[in-house]
């Protein structure tokens, strides 16, 4: 793992950057995409996540909506991590991310920039912010697999 990702100052800047300039932050509203609306029950985070799959591959992930720094940045980083992965790889990364948020041992290599959220789990009221986009994408992943059954 890059030494840079161990530096708190760099991690802060990663979150800041993804909050102010979120990646893949525009919806296509295309029929080729699956879409889910994620509205937090405990706060105002309210986002839409879109994903396009091709057989076993995650072709594209996008999002839009209103969310806090943690909600926006964690979803932005998630989209970057998922695009181009196989569904299986995507599921592994998601599982590692949840482990990290839950305070368990996790694979830093797989999570790349998402390690910036390693301490969010210590503030229980913000866990939903750090996972809202991830859970949205996970729902789309599940939906895509149902379609192929």
């Amino acid at each position: 793992m890059s030494e840079l990702l161990k530096n708190p100052q760099i991690l802060r800047e990663i979150i800041m950057d993804h909050y102010q300039y979120p990646h893949n932050h525009e919806l296509t509203h295309s029929d080729e995409y699956l879409s889910v609306h994620m509205a937090s029950e405990s706060c105002i985070d309210d986002i839409h996540v879109e994903a396009k799959f091709d057989a076993n591959k995650v072709v594209d992930v996008r999002f839009d909506g209103v969310a806090c720094t943690i909600g926006t940045a964690s979803t932005s980083i998630m989209t970057e991590l998922m695009i181009g992965k196989t569904k299986e790889e995507a599921r592994t990364i998601i599982a590692e991310y949840y482990k990290m948020i839950d305070g368990q041992a996790y694979d830093e290599e797989l999570l790349e920039e998402a390690v910036a959220f390693q301490n969010v789990g210590k503030q229980a009221n913000r866990i939903k912010c750090a996972t809202i986009g991830w859970k949205g994408f996970e729902e789309l992943l599940n939906e895509s697999e149902k379609e192929h059954e």
């Binding site: 979150i15 720094t69 301490n119 503030q123 913000r126």
Partner: peptide
């Protein structure tokens, strides 16, 4: 500030 709000996680 936004910076300090993110800073609480480090």
């Amino acid at each position: 500030t936004v910076e300090n709000c993110i800073g609480i996680f480090f």
